[in-house]
Nucleic acid binder design. Structure first.
Length: 502
DNA sequence: CGTATAATGTCTAGACATTATACGGTGCTCTAGT
């Protein structure tokens, strides 16, 4: 047995790697910057943990969500790893200071990109040897980067400040453009790419056109009654998640809750846990639900309208069928759906007078302090996310002369909007197309459907002919459900669930 | 674009219709001090 497999066995108790893992680890061990795309549930965390054990230095993991970090830390601790911590705002000041002061005694450190703004942390990290710089869920770099979480676009700068440690970017869904963004933003040099298909043959793809919103709702109720659960319903707004959950509670016999970003953290955690442990059959949610949800047996995902991009859609349907069993994704849409998205995007853009106005505000201010700039703009009536985006580009071109600055700013904001609109349009195009839906989605990632590995036509997509009765609810006696629930609880207690770590 | 709330308008003065406006989704950060 080679050293790689010995490490795998010693720390994780597995005797073989999943597809792709070994090559990715090898690449990192060879000191190559690496970009890896593995399907959801493909075992991404092993790809940085094993190199961590086999090399010197701290493994710094940039993670987008607090819950994700905490989840990972907990799992690693349950496995027996003590030298791991997540540094974030859930800790008290003392706890944070303690971790920063004792950084050399840690092997794995999880942080959000925003945390690297802290001088104290950055200085301490600079004085250490960083063995590996990991960016988890790397598609966030381009998806959330400039306008939503601008710190994502500074990761490259920070990596350089830390002495250019080897980088590993991990994701499940990325287009060529996203990969390019990742390479650029992280300032990777001649990286190794390990790209695996985004296709999930066990998820059948259905799309249905309806005339009205009411018709979609009616259909959703039918589906929830008919289909084998558990399931998810993705809604475009927070309001709608609550409405749908109410309707479903009244009209179906399912245990239902809603979930969105506006709820407090405790409720969100509770519902997520109840769903994972099998005490809920259905969750009506916005796009806030999903990342880091490790539930293997989700059987269906219904979309009440198309999300803003094909990537987002793939991420969301990818939450179904992680156990490899037959699952189904159903997209309900009306003709107008894409138009709404389009208007939303246009509404968040800046028109010329707005740019002039806010730019004047920015240049008037004698400070370069990000916080103060943001406060000022928000006082002038700008939303936080828009203010941050504007400041980001403003600082990028600040050293140029005013006219050039204005020109570049306008150009950037325009590009950003055009790009978003293009994504909506590209999705719309594929929804109205009558060819194989699966092939059509894969073509967005420049993939060809491989006939040998693909699903047979009766479980491919609605365009290829699909029999929904394959996904019909199997009546299970209640006791069996209860037993299954308790088995899950016990397994979790003793950490026996395979999918937990692998 | 579509929906929810706020503001205005109406006619046996407090409820009710009409019109105007805002917003829609995703999340991190952090004080302070012996």
């Amino acid at each position: 047995m080679d050293k790689l497999h010995q490490t795998l066995m010693r720390y994780f108790g597995y005797d073989s790697f999943k597809t792709g893992q070994e090559d990715i680890i090898q690449s990192v061990l060879n000191q190559k910057d690496t970009v890896a795309m593995l399907p959801t549930g493909g075992g991404k965390s092993i790809c940085y943990q094993i190199p961590g054990y086999m090399t010197d230095g701290l493994v710094l993991i940039i993670s987008p969500l607090l819950s994700l970090m905490e989840d990972q830390v907990e799992r690693m601790k349950m496995r027996g790893e003590k030298r791991v911590a997540a540094l974030n705002s859930t800790l008290s000041f003392q706890e944070r200071r303690h971790i920063i002061r004792h950084l050399p005694s840690y092997k794995f450190l999880f942080v959000a990109p925003e945390a690297l703004m802290s001088e104290m942390l950055l200085e301490q990290l600079k004085s250490m040897h960083i063995g590996l710089f990991v960016v988890d869920e790397a598609h966030c770099i381009s998806e959330w980067g400039h306008d939503f979480r601008p710190e994502y676009s500074k990761l490259g700068e920070w990596r350089e400040a830390l002495g250019h440690p080897v980088a590993l970017a991990l994701t499940a869904t990325a287009t060529k453009q996203t990969l390019k963004d990742t390479v650029q933003t992280l300032r990777l040099q001649h990286p190794d790419f390990h790209i695996h298909s985004v296709n999930r043959p066990n998820i059948a793809l259905v799309k249905e056109a309806h005339e009205t919103k009411e018709a979609k709702e009616k259909r959703a109720i039918e589906l929830v009654e008919y289909l084998q659960g558990p399931g998810l319903i993705y809604c475009p707004t927070r309001q709608m998640t609550e409405d749908m959950a109410l309707i479903m509670k009244q009209k179906t016999h399912q245990r239902v809750e809603y979930y969105h970003g506006g709820m407090d953290a405790g409720d969100r955690m509770l519902i997520q846990q109840q769903f994972i442990s099998g005490q809920l059959d259905l969750i009506c949610c916005t796009s806030a639900f999903g990342m880091g949800i490790d539930k293997a047996d989700i059987r269906f995902v219904i979309h009440m309208s198309p999300p803003q991009s094909i990537e987002a859609f793939m991420q969301e349907i990818g939450r179904a069928g992680r156990d490899g069993k037959k699952s189904v994704s159903i997209l309900l849409y009306t003709e107008e759906d894409a138009d709404i998205q389009q208007h939303l995007i246009q509404a968040e853009g800046f028109d010329e007078p707005e740019i002039d106005f806010f730019l004047a505000r920015l240049t008037q201010m004698q400070t370069n302090d990000e916080k103060k700039l943001r406060e000022q703009l928000m006082e002038s009536g700008l939303q936080e996310t828009r203010a941050r985006m504007l400041i980001h580009y403003y600082r990028m071109y600040q050293s140029d002369e005013p006219r050039v600055l204005l020109m570049k700013l306008k150009e950037k904001l325009q590009d950003r909007q055009t790009e978003k609109l293009r994504k909506v349009w590209q999705f719309k195009e594929r929804i109205t197309d009558h060819g194989c839906f699966r092939q059509s989605l894969l073509s967005y990632f420049y993939e060809q459907l491989d006939q040998t590995e693909s699903a047979s036509s009766d479980s491919c997509c609605s365009s290829c002919g699909l029999d929904l009765s394959d996904y019909e609810k199997k009546d299970q006696p209640l006791e069996l459900n209860e037993m299954k629930h308790w088995k899950t609880v016990l397994d979790r207690m003793f950490h026996l669930t395979k999918e937990a770590q692998h």
